[in-house]
Simulated assay, not measured.
Amino acid sequence: MPYSISEIIVLFFTYSFIGWLWETCYCSIKDHHYDYRGFLFGPYCPVYGFAITTILICTKDVQDNLFLLFVIGFIVATVFEYFASFFLEKVFHMKLWDYSHLWGNVQGRVAPIISLFWGIGVVLLVKFVQPFVQDIINIEERDTHGWLAVGITIVMGLDTVLTMISVERFHTTTKMWDDHINQFIDRVRIKVESRMPEKGKLKVGDWHHSVMQHYDELQPYQLSWNHKRFLKSFPKLKVLDAPKFMEIKKDILKKED
């Protein structure tokens, strides 16, 4: 093993933070408002930490070979991104990103152009960022004897538990919203059809306005700060089994603010 366990933990945290910083800056500029990125509460994106730490371990002996570094970065990062997307969808019924509009994408989870960016990014990180980061970690390891890694493990572990609770509540809340919206639409349909039986079965068209007019009576639960963060910071976020909520999420956010 080219790194000690405590070094791996600190590397994981460092690149999780760097990944969060990159995504937050890039997406905030792109979306013209502040985006607090990351799935967890804290300022870190574990998918970056997992991917880059794995790449550093796998490429320890070939880091002078830029082509191999690029290829390994391309493959490892793509695999991690695919399975992170798969995990979020199957466990939490959520999609935080969707590359369906990009050429060559696989189920909207990964795409060649994104993987190309990963490969180039890995080369730049390993050649220019990692030497500086490693110097800092060496000093930290000497001074703290691995206790920083213990602290990181505790903090990120607690964060993961709290985030899973929050996401489960988010899923429950959006499902309740969807159920309430469907019930409201059915009530409107029955009411209109009872007054105009000669028209036959009513096709409900633009229900968005009517739902928002009855926002107060429909609202099952208020969205928490973290739930609003998800919706604001991940414009392509989808709760797969709450499609009606997803259609009017922007209007709901305006009411909630």
Rank of each mutant, 00 (worst) to 15 (best):
E89Y: 02
P197E: 01
D31L: 09
Q63R: 11
F87N: 05
Q222N: 13
D251C: 02
D143E: 12
V155Q: 06
E89C: 03
H208Q: 14
A77G: 05
I181T: 08
F74A: 09
F184C: 09
T160H: 10
V71A: 14
F234E: 09
S16T: 08
S115C: 13
Y15M: 08
L237T: 05
T174H: 01
V126E: 05
C45N: 11
T173R: 11
G42M: 04
K232A: 07
E141T: 13
W225E: 14
N182W: 02
Y34F: 15
A77E: 02
R37A: 11
V167E: 01
F13T: 10
V122K: 02
S4M: 00
R169C: 08
N65R: 01
Y44F: 13
I9N: 03
F74N: 11
V167R: 01
R195P: 00
Q219L: 09
D251R: 10
A242K: 03
L66Y: 02
Q107K: 15
Y215T: 10
F86S: 10
I136M: 12
P112R: 04
Y215M: 08
I152L: 12
W20T: 12
T160P: 00
N182H: 07
I52F: 04
T78R: 03
F170I: 08
F50W: 07
C45D: 06
Y36I: 11
Y44L: 14
W97P: 08
Y3I: 00
I72V: 15
I114S: 13
W147V: 12
Q63H: 07
